[in-house]
Amino acid sequence: MKDPLRIPGVLAALGRAWEAQPDLTLPQLYGQLESRGIAWNSTDDEVTTALDDLTADHPARLADIPGAPETTRVLVVTEQPDQRITVDGTRIAVRRAPAPGSHGRVPQPVIWTHHGIRRCTVGQPLVVLDSADIPHHLGLVAGLTAGSADPAPASLTGLRRRDLGGHVYLIELDGDELAGTTVLVDRTLWLYDIGRRDVRTDRLSWARLVAGDIGEPLVVALQDGRTLRLPEVTGITVLE
């Protein structure tokens, strides 16, 4: 007879993986294991390893991600409201989903300095402390993804849209405390011109960042052949 003491360990690994993706049914979770090579004749050790790998890709808690958020960026997807939130050791970037009837218009991302993550667990509210240690509830955590531990780049010069992959960047341009411009670089380039009373949003089709060094003007080659020249880059944040 096989050792029955192995069963709690396998069930614990299953629980960790399922808690991280609570919207999945058990058969759907089995489907993810099948995509990782698990079949009816797999050993319990192989199943446990696959479950642990699945949990590493989709952790249930911020504390389960090695080095997060101090040295590893984390993408937090929330519901109520629907947001994509990037957290690193000092800053947090919040992107709200497009509002109904906005024709896919992406709201301007908001970046601020945080003093710590009080709670970040799938199925619970995301609670972040601001620089004055005031807690902010930023929605219900629906999923976590570990990002890169590499520092933010000092230059995006030469970046082509076709080579973007799954990366998303936010570029901050020179301005004062009441007015300025930010650029969201995704498959579409979103330009947010921040005035003293409102924010103008432009959606552009881009081909390449001709110049994108911190301290230098941002120059963008558009797909229609035009070149867009913007104020100098003051910061680059990796969102995904």
Rank of each mutant, 00 (worst) to 15 (best):
111 I>E: 14
69 P>W: 01
171 I>V: 15
167 H>K: 14
233 V>T: 09
187 R>M: 09
3 D>K: 05
74 V>D: 01
33 L>F: 01
41 N>G: 10
55 T>K: 00
110 V>M: 09
83 Q>I: 02
6 R>N: 10
17 A>I: 00
101 G>D: 09
35 S>E: 15
83 Q>K: 13
205 S>W: 09
21 Q>E: 15
81 P>D: 07
104 G>S: 11
197 R>M: 10
90 T>P: 00
60 A>L: 03
148 S>I: 06
232 E>R: 15
147 G>P: 01
177 E>H: 13
71 T>E: 12
174 D>C: 07
78 T>R: 01
56 A>K: 01
119 R>N: 15
53 D>R: 12
81 P>C: 06
222 L>P: 03
76 V>S: 01
22 P>T: 02
5 L>N: 14
19 E>V: 08
61 R>T: 11
101 G>P: 05
128 V>T: 06
53 D>Q: 15
220 V>R: 04
71 T>H: 14
172 E>M: 07
233 V>Q: 04
37 G>I: 05
174 D>E: 15
87 V>I: 15
129 L>M: 15
85 I>Q: 02
184 L>K: 05
175 G>N: 08
39 A>R: 15
1 M>S: 14
138 L>V: 09
202 D>G: 07
162 R>M: 12
142 A>F: 03
95 R>Y: 04
104 G>V: 07
73 R>N: 07
183 V>K: 02
143 G>F: 04
96 R>L: 15
70 E>C: 06
190 W>F: 11
227 T>Y: 05
105 R>M: 15
10 V>D: 01
78 T>E: 05
149 A>I: 11
122 V>N: 02
183 V>Q: 02
187 R>Y: 10
160 R>C: 13
